[in-house]
Simulated scan of single mutants.
Amino acid sequence: MFDTKVVFIVRNDLAQWQRMNVVAFLATGIAAAAPEIMGEPYVDASGHRYGNMAGQPMLIFEAGLDGLQAAHQVGLQRQLTMLPYVFPMFSTGHDAANREVFLREDPANMNLVGLVLRGPKKAVDTAAKGLQLHK
């Protein structure tokens, strides 16, 4: 049905609130980076209009730092749409500070806590190969 796939990967050593926070922020990022994934607004039986959500399924995986870094490298090689979340972003209080700490990360060795990937199914599957679905 879909020729693209969206996959979130969250580091498996985070507290539950951190995992949820990372996925929430990455979800907003993928919606902005790929607005074509957004479905139509919802309307209930009384005619009340609600917002719209992504129209395609999204999977959430968990991995250690090595798994995240490997997926990131494949994502770069395959030119996937990606949004990374790095550990130092937990210590900031606003978007500009997030970008500052992100800029200081070593692109070849990011301290990733989360990553969302979107692109052709085969390429995304290759990036997430061997990872387990989040429990």
Score class of each variant (00 low, 15 high):
35 P>A: 09
92 T>F: 06
2 F>G: 01
25 F>R: 15
80 L>S: 07
92 T>S: 02
38 M>L: 15
95 D>Y: 11
32 A>I: 08
130 G>W: 14
115 L>N: 04
95 D>T: 02
6 V>E: 05
64 G>P: 08
10 V>N: 08
132 Q>L: 13
123 A>S: 09
54 A>V: 06
5 K>T: 11
61 F>C: 15
100 E>D: 13
90 F>Q: 02
53 M>T: 06
108 A>H: 09
30 I>Q: 03
79 Q>I: 04
48 H>N: 14
79 Q>S: 11
66 D>L: 12
99 R>A: 07
90 F>L: 10
125 D>Q: 05
135 K>Y: 14
41 P>Y: 06
55 G>R: 07
50 Y>I: 00
82 M>T: 04
58 M>R: 03
20 M>G: 14
105 E>S: 03
89 M>V: 07
20 M>S: 15
62 E>A: 12
99 R>F: 10
33 A>P: 08
66 D>E: 14
21 N>F: 01
68 L>I: 04
93 G>Y: 04
37 I>W: 12
42 Y>L: 11
134 H>C: 12
116 V>Y: 01
109 N>H: 10
97 A>S: 14
111 N>I: 00
31 A>P: 00
62 E>W: 11
10 V>F: 10
97 A>I: 13
56 Q>N: 03
75 G>Y: 01
96 A>Q: 14
85 Y>I: 02
22 V>F: 02
95 D>R: 08
109 N>K: 11
32 A>G: 11
81 T>M: 08
117 L>M: 05
114 G>M: 09
101 V>Y: 07
69 Q>K: 08
106 D>M: 02
50 Y>D: 03
2 F>Q: 02
45 A>S: 15
39 G>T: 01
110 M>R: 14
53 M>N: 08
79 Q>W: 11
19 R>V: 13
45 A>R: 15
61 F>Q: 08
135 K>R: 15
95 D>A: 14
128 A>S: 12
35 P>L: 05
103 L>V: 00
40 E>S: 14
39 G>P: 12
24 A>K: 06
36 E>G: 10
82 M>V: 02
57 P>S: 00
53 M>Y: 01
35 P>N: 15
126 T>P: 05
51 G>I: 09
90 F>C: 09
88 P>W: 10
70 A>G: 03
46 S>A: 15
7 V>A: 15
124 V>E: 09
62 E>L: 05
117 L>R: 04
98 N>C: 12
82 M>I: 03
57 P>C: 01
60 I>K: 05
51 G>M: 10
79 Q>P: 01
95 D>K: 06
21 N>D: 12
132 Q>P: 00
24 A>F: 11
89 M>T: 04
1 M>C: 05
83 L>Y: 12
55 G>C: 00
9 I>T: 03
44 D>A: 08
109 N>V: 00
81 T>Q: 10
26 L>S: 00
71 A>I: 08
67 G>N: 06
121 K>V: 08
94 H>Y: 10
129 K>Y: 12
52 N>M: 13
89 M>F: 00
110 M>H: 05
57 P>T: 04
48 H>Y: 11
